[in-house]
Amino acid sequence: MSTPALRLGTRRSRLALTQSQWVADAITAATGVPVELVHIVTEGDVSTAAIAQLGGTGVFVTAIRQALHDGRVDLAVHSYKDLPTAPEPGLVLAAVPVREDPRDALVARDGLTLGELPPGSTVGTGAPRRVAQIRALGLGLDVVPIRGNVDTRMARVVPGDLDAVVLARAGLARLGRTDAITETLDPLQVLPAPAQGALAVECREDDARTRELLAPLEHAGTRACVVAERSTLAALEAGCSAPVAAYAEVADGEDGPELYLRASVTALDGSDAVRGSVTGPLGEAAALGRALAAELLDRGAAELMAAPQIPEHALSQGPGSRSTR
Rank of each mutant, 00 (worst) to 15 (best):
I310M: 02
P257L: 10
A95P: 03
R99Y: 01
L175E: 01
A293P: 03
E88S: 14
L315H: 11
A235M: 04
A294M: 02
Y247E: 03
R7N: 07
Y260S: 12
R12W: 11
P4F: 15
V107D: 01
T42I: 10
V41W: 08
E212T: 15
G115L: 00
A224G: 08
T210Q: 04
L236K: 06
C203Q: 09
A246I: 00
R211Y: 12
A215F: 08
A238R: 09
Q196D: 11
E218D: 07
R325Q: 08
L8C: 10
L17R: 15
C203E: 11
T178Q: 09
I51F: 01
R325Y: 01
L261A: 04
P128I: 04
R65G: 04
Y80K: 08
A52L: 11
L236V: 01
A193Q: 04
G140F: 08
G111I: 07
A307G: 08
A193N: 07
C203P: 12
G171C: 10
G320I: 09
R262E: 13
L175H: 03
S241H: 14
L8K: 09
T48F: 09
A228G: 02
A108K: 01
W22T: 05
L185F: 14
V278Y: 01
S2P: 15
D255A: 14
A235Q: 03
V123D: 04
V73T: 13
S20T: 03
G120R: 08
V98G: 06
D298E: 02
E202Y: 04
G9E: 13
V123P: 06
L217K: 02
A246T: 01
G221D: 07
A200G: 15
G318M: 14
A105G: 03
G318L: 15
R153T: 00
T57P: 14
L114P: 04
V33H: 09
A314C: 01
I146W: 13
D269G: 12
S264T: 11
E303M: 12
G276R: 07
T10G: 07
V157P: 15
A170Y: 14
G171F: 13
P311V: 12
D151P: 10
A302P: 10
V23L: 00
A242W: 01
V33N: 07
G270R: 09
D82N: 11
G58P: 05
L259Y: 15
L172W: 10
P216H: 03
E212D: 15
T85D: 10
P145K: 15
M1V: 15
E212P: 05
G90I: 10
A234D: 03
L106Y: 03
L83W: 00
G176R: 06
Q196V: 04
L139H: 02
R209A: 13
A294Y: 03
V278L: 09
G270M: 13
G171S: 15
S271L: 12
L315Y: 13
G276Q: 09
T152I: 07
V107C: 04
T178P: 05
E183L: 02
D179K: 10
R230L: 12
G138Y: 03
E205D: 10
G90M: 09
Q309V: 13
L112H: 09
H219Y: 06
A132T: 04
L162R: 00
W22P: 00
L268S: 02
A76M: 06
P118M: 10
E205H: 08
Y247H: 12
L162V: 06
